[in-house]
Write a protein that binds this DNA or RNA. Structure first.
Lengths: 220, 220
DNA sequence: ACATCACTGTCGGTTGTGCGACAATTAGGA
DNA sequence: TCCTAATTGTCGCACAACCGACAGTGATGT
């Protein structure tokens, strides 16, 4: 049981090819935290709450959102191997965003008062953590570029290319995509209609299928 | 001479209140790198080049830009205490962006083959580095929110509030602001005219003066 | 089978912003 | 001092995107 978690942590935390973790490091990490499970729609933590723990996402997708002036805005969506909640924790400030499980989520919870001594004692873990953070930073920077000065069609095309699974399906409602890109639902619909017309995708109920990745890329 | 740099590094690298560095840590950091100076307009590193070093900005402002499909896009602007070039370095990939000195810049250069052993040997430094990275991440996430679903006037108001120095001056041309926000120069001009009309700012050649921060905030 | 709810598709009216163009102003060097 | 380059200020036009509204369609539970 515990072995499984160790194996998973070794495989997915940060980059596997980089700085292999020793069994001791791994054991220390495993002992410092605990595996938790979250049902769809439940929160791992909420914006403004006291930051008492950071999480490593083991399975599933977590959505990070933040209350805007009117509607909540989605800061990002992270999956397997991502670290969340650490920004607030290290700065000793309340959580800066809310983390909601989109599907069933398994995560590894690390308590604040255990995490710091752990990282101090195991430099390799600290470096891994660092790399995970920088990974997230680079991803966010790319998102900025994807949002700036691009039409909705281009944004949608890029998003679908990112989000499509192995079968080319994207399981998102048009409203969700709208919130994700910070546009209106109608505009998404219009954009999808255009992509559909050029045979790049097909649309269904809560589902979009990528038919031709090249045609899709041509729109981005 | 060296003492000065040590003092600076202790003061400005990451958060001072957090995890005070021991003299040993500091000395190790100082020995692993070297202080460099850059003239305005010169590059610390360029996009696509081999990532052989990371930098800690000691003084001045550095602009991070990335080649877009047509025009270069500005990923961010960082100042004193920020760490740059580390994303690419830790991932062992070419630099993602170009770093250009906007004014005279003093920086601390850390070689790749010295940085890793250093961080492995000094956990406190690794944690400081981590916090600096997360700082940058949070800043970038805020930037996403600032760009999404906001009018140009709101964006300009927020930018001026961020960028104003102690006298309320912002030394940027309208074109620069336009690139920074990913909009057109004309729109910036129009936005500034509106802010000027409501007595929030005053404009001059390559310079904008914030007259009333509250009036400015009302526009954001 | 039916009712209900969530989601998709589509329509005009309105607003914000990009773009081209051009005049006016400022800074800095010959 | 004058000349030149850079920057600012201001048009009008075109287009992309938002908004409200409403009909059509798929999913779900009683």
């Amino acid at each position: 049981m515990e072995e499984q978690h160790y194996a998973w942590l070794a495989k997915s935390f940060g980059r596997t090819d980089y700085l292999p973790l020793s069994p001791e490091d791994l054991a220390a990490l495993g002992e410092a935290g605990e595996a938790i499970e979250k049902y769809p729609g439940t929160y791992l933590f909420r914006e403004g709450a006291d930051s008492d723990a950071a999480y490593i996402v083991e399975k599933g997708t977590v959505e990070l959102s933040r209350e805007g002036t009117d509607r909540p805005r989605i800061v990002g969506r992270v999956g397997e191997g991502s670290v969340i909640g650490d920004i607030a924790l290290f700065r000793e400030q309340p959580y800066y965003s809310s983390a909601r499980a989109l599907g069933p989520v398994t995560a590894f919870r690390l308590d604040r008062n255990k995490l710091l001594p752990l990282l101090m004692a195991h430099p390799k873990l600290a470096l891994r953590w660092l790399v995970a953070g920088l990974d997230q930073l680079e991803k966010t920077q790319r998102r900025v570029l994807r949002l700036m000065n691009r039409t909705v069609v281009q944004q949608v095309a890029a998003l679908l290319d990112d989000e499509a699974d192995q079968y080319g399906d994207v399981h998102l409602s048009q409203s969700s995509i709208a919130t994700l890109l910070g546009t209106s639902r109608q505009s998404i619909n219009e954009a999808l209609a255009e992509l559909k017309k050029s045979k790049a995708v097909d649309t269904g109920y809560r589902k979009i299928t990528v038919l031709n990745r090249d045609a899709l890329a041509a729109h981005a």
